[in-house]
Amino acid sequence: MIDTISVLLALTSLFLLGSSRIRISIRMVIAQGFLLGVAFLLHNSQHLNLGTWTIGISSILLKGAILPWLLTFVLHRSKAKLEVEPFIGFGASLFIGILLLGFSSYIAWNLSIASTARSIPPALFSVALFLILSGMFLIITRKKAITQTIGYLVLENGVFATGLGIGHEFPFIVEMGVMLDIFVGVFLMGIMIFRIDKAFDHTDTHLFNELLDKIDDSHDDVVDMENA
């Protein structure tokens, strides 16, 4: 079951890489939150107590409801266009996504052979790594602040998924700390986006360059000539 959830997690992330709509991206983040919460409960189904239930339910709520709601709120307030603007095209992003997934599986495979205590299911572990990497990829390659925030969330989900496996040994202090960081990050982002919006009318971090220097036309390969 956990393996199936890992597959679904990987798919949501791939979908994120390929989707051009911010709303769909947010929905994918919601799905990831739910999946991770369920995976957490399933993984700890042997020792279900008040603590694990609390963490499970609260992570579902936080990841699956509150943060996405915040994002949607920001999206509405900033009046940004509802489309993701990538530096790297969606098809290419997907392709790179497959490569990243392959890389994480390779690492997970090697680590699971190396470690004697196989506490982490390799499928889950590889997907966790993949979430972290694809989160970073999203942050790097998307222009808008809001899509970058989504990237942060995916990255954080990856950290959470990694924490799942080693949950018995390392309680959730680490995880909650990260969570808090991210929460603050999102919160600040939200305010920032709002302010940016007020100041510049859009939330395209790519265009911060305009403050610095006149940026080159990115289509320098296209030469328009005046009709002689």
């Binding site: 098809g91 290419a92 390969d221 296209v222 030469v223 328009d224 000539m225 009709n227």
Partner: peptide
């Protein structure tokens, strides 16, 4: 699709004016 691999250069002279010729 493969613009990442190819180096594509486009040179175009757009017809303009009310009676565009060439």
């Amino acid at each position: 699709l493969f613009r990442a691999i190819l180096r594509l250069k486009i040179v175009r002279i757009a017809p303009n004016g009310f009676f565009p010729d060439s």
